[in-house]
Design a protein around this nucleic acid. Structure first.
Lengths: 138, 138
DNA sequence: GCTTACGTTTACGTAAACGTAAAGTTCGCC
DNA sequence: GGCGAACTTTACGTTTACGTAAACGTAAGC
């Protein structure tokens, strides 16, 4: 074919550096079925697909999901869209996940609001203390 | 004093029911220094302050923080505001936490966007399959 | 005064997510 | 052909966040 996309590949150490994790972690994700790189003999060869998956994994972790949950989420992308019953189940899972994320959004909003209050308070206190430098003893 | 706020108290089982956790978890949080209820002999007596703290704990957990991190966050509320150096350190911590939360917000936004795409796709596929009921074999 | 419910401490068990050490392979290079 | 760097598997260790069981205390109700 004329348009042969120079399929980019990665070594395990390369990925580890890029994502700021250890090679041990990457192999662990493979053990858990989150990644399935190609092989060149013993060596693991990661393609663009694995790269995307790893990005999704890291995001999931930042969001506090377990690896099992993350695997479920990632598998959603690979669902076979030919079976209607599976599609319906799939959509259900999407909505459940959406609810969870909405709940997290609320939690973050509340926490940020509290942080705002605390910070304003502290800034005020700090300004007050520092403006009094001239008056009190050094 | 005329305005004696009928200080509401809670038993451990009461709290456990309200927050949907076990009494074991609550005692564990105490071990980790996240709670410090009063005592009536052996019994633990939880006041409004503990109630608030437990709410913060649960929120922190939903956001994927470890108990150690949550303790740090909660302790922010109890910082002594008389020491300037401590105040500055305090404000620094607030901003770090804020950054973390912002990052989580972005992650959630991205994930929700992807869920939208996936769901629209699936709905379309599903509608297509179901509209074809009349044509193909039952 | 015995049961039942609720609470207590002590302590060992467990699942998740890796860390870390051991021991061997494979590659490019000089 | 020997070296080092990067990789491999195997396997035991560690931390976190509780679960679970044992053995006991206390208070209410009948």
């Amino acid at each position: 074919m004329a348009l042969d996309q120079t399929q980019q590949t990665f070594g395990i150490a390369e990925l580890a550096r890029e994502f700021g994790i250890t090679t041990r972690a990457i192999r662990f994700y493979e053990d858990k079925g989150l990644l399935s790189p190609a092989r060149d003999g013993q060596r693991r060869i990661y393609g663009p697909r694995d790269h995307v998956r790893l990005r999704l994994i890291m995001r999931g972790k930042r969001l506090g999901f377990s690896l099992d949950e993350i695997r479920e989420m990632i598998d959603l992308y690979d669902v076979d869209p030919t079976e209607v019953s599976q599609l319906k189940l799939f959509i259900g899972k999407l909505q459940a996940r959406r609810e969870q994320l909405r709940s997290q959004q609320e939690d973050i909003a509340e926490t940020l609001a509290e942080l705002d209050r605390l910070e304003t308070q502290s800034q005020d206190l700090l300004a007050e203390r520092e403006s009094r430098r001239g008056k009190s003893a050094r």
